[in-house]
Design a protein around this nucleic acid. Structure first.
Length: 191
DNA sequence: AAAGGCCTCAACCGCAGGTAG
DNA sequence: GCTACCTGCGGTTGAGGCCTT
């Protein structure tokens, strides 16, 4: 097993100080992103490269959007999670200004519960042996997010004694410029 | 006001894939 | 082909703030 990268003596761990943030920000501004292994030494930081990378990506990057997730963002995360599963970096890539860590945290703390209660509610309303529902986001020119996506999921669920197997046939997950978001075959939900 | 439980989120850990030597 | 290193990712942890009793 490889040693943890921060095991080196004298390395700082835990919360970043303002001075450390300033040093890292200044370094990336002048030298650019990348070569994280050499960043601590070059920037004069007692941190490992991984820690520097994470701090920059999750917190210091200038294009990061702070604050609460909008309902549109939450809906999009739920839809993308249905398609992609825990592929947080892919999901975050569809949410401008949001990081994978932020999306993951938001999902784990709030959306998973919201999604579960919503799914249970929908299952209750449907016939017990066959569950079919359509999640779709109609284009809405007033909506920044939905305007960029055209999600059309056709879910067919079959109930078994211990789980609900859910096959999602992706009809399309295509950005407005015509490029595919990703390859997404089949998924299974266990409730 | 105090204590304890819950929630959020920044940060860490370990693994996998890519690549240079 | 093998090894070592770098980078990125997803899972997990824990400190601190908030809420409830």
């Amino acid at each position: 097993m490889r040693r943890p990268c921060c095991e080196k003596r004298g390395m700082n761990k835990g919360a970043w100080s303002k001075q450390e943030d300033q040093r890292l920000t200044e370094y990336v501004r002048t030298q650019g992103e990348g070569r994280w292994g050499s960043v601590p030494k070059a920037a004069g930081l007692l941190r490992c490269g991984k820690s520097c990378r994470l701090r920059w990506i999750n917190y210091l990057r200038p294009d990061i959007k702070r604050g609460n997730f909008s309902e549109d963002e939450e809906d999009l995360i739920i839809k993308l999670h249905t398609l992609l599963g825990n592929r947080w970096s892919l999901i975050a890539g569809r949410l401008p200004g949001r990081t994978d860590n932020e999306v993951k945290n938001h999902w784990n703390s709030r959306l998973s519960k919201k999604f579960q209660s919503r799914t249970r509610e929908e299952v209750k309303l449907c016939a017990p042996r066959k569950y079919s529902c359509q999640l779709s986001s109609a284009s809405n020119s007033n909506n920044d997010f939905e305007a960029r996506f055209d999600l059309n999921l056709d879910l067919t669920m079959s109930l078994s004694s211990s789980s609900i197997a859910c096959e999602a046939n992706r009809e399309e997950l295509i950005e407005n410029d015509g490029s595919e978001v990703s390859q997404t075959p089949t998924l299974a939900l266990f409730l």
